[in-house]
Design a protein around this nucleic acid. Sequence first.
DNA 1: ACCGATGATTATTG
DNA 2: CAATAATCATCGGT
Length: 341
Amino acid sequence: MVGNSMDSSGGPRTFADLLNEVVSISEQSLDDNDSQKKQALSCHPMKSALFEVLCEIKEKTALSIRTGSDETPEDPQLMRLDNMLIAEGVAGPDKATPLAGDASGGDQADYRAKLQQIRTVYSQELQKYEEACGEFTQHVRSLLIDQAKTRPVASKEIERMVSIIQKKFSGIQVALKQSTCEAVMILRSRFLDARRKRRNFSKQATEVLNEYFYSHLANPYPSEEAKEELARQCNITVSQVSNWFGNKRIRYKKNIAKAQEEANMYAAKKAASVHGLGGMAPGYSMLAGSSAGLMPPYPAMLPGQDLSHMGLPGGFDLTAAYNPQLMAQYQQSSMDNNESN
DNA sequence: ACCGATGATTATTG
DNA sequence: CAATAATCATCGGT
């Protein structure tokens, strides 16, 4: 407390008296409504002049305080989020997300719809946020302006207050943008990974593929043209055909015994669908090596043959089954083994 | 709810 | 680059 030697009640006032009075007020709690003193001050003839001086002083001190402290750190995190949202098509203009999903089919519309949903929610929230922020800022501003009537409040000070508010609000903004980014990332990963939402091929499509596979067991590697043809027939993409054959080969190899049944099935199917097979040796010539007759038939891989009777050694390299040369080699030695046994 | 089948992706290899 | 092998995530039947 400043020692107040003045008697505050009555008597002619000097400038110094008045200053003392003001100081003593500001030292007191601002909340206590000392309306008497305020009243007395606002009625004083010197009031406006004094007020001006105080405002000037305040402005100067406030300036010196402010320069060192903050001045918009331009929140790098917020900028990062903004950039990402624009890149992701949530913020900027409505762009037609390319999303080059390879084989995953064309349910891009679904993705677009979900993204649009996020967009609208985001913009709504952002709008609400901006409204609330503006409203609050305006409220504080008018409050301060109102207070400026009774105590010196410089415009710079108001601006400082506003910037503080805006900083607080930007925290909320960051949270909003962050959660939006998160939602987009989840959505993106869901749709980018085509393993999700996988659809099995149609019965007819697998039929066609299986027919080809078991008709070319000796060399189940369709050429690019063959793949295109199969893709056309099955109404799938070429890369899906490639995937299918890759999976089929490896899975067939993994369990020849089980696949044998399937092979028989498709062989029978094929036999039934072809004319003039009457006296043919079962299984053979029209199946294997049907690719331009370059490949001789390999009985070991054909239906009707029981591989377990072949005396296959445990370490049978099944890749040989797909390679004519290796297969021929293997058969040679295998036959030798059989004969010697 | 579980489990095998299955289409797709990833990592590795030649 | 294409094939293989391993793995993932979903589907479809029980």
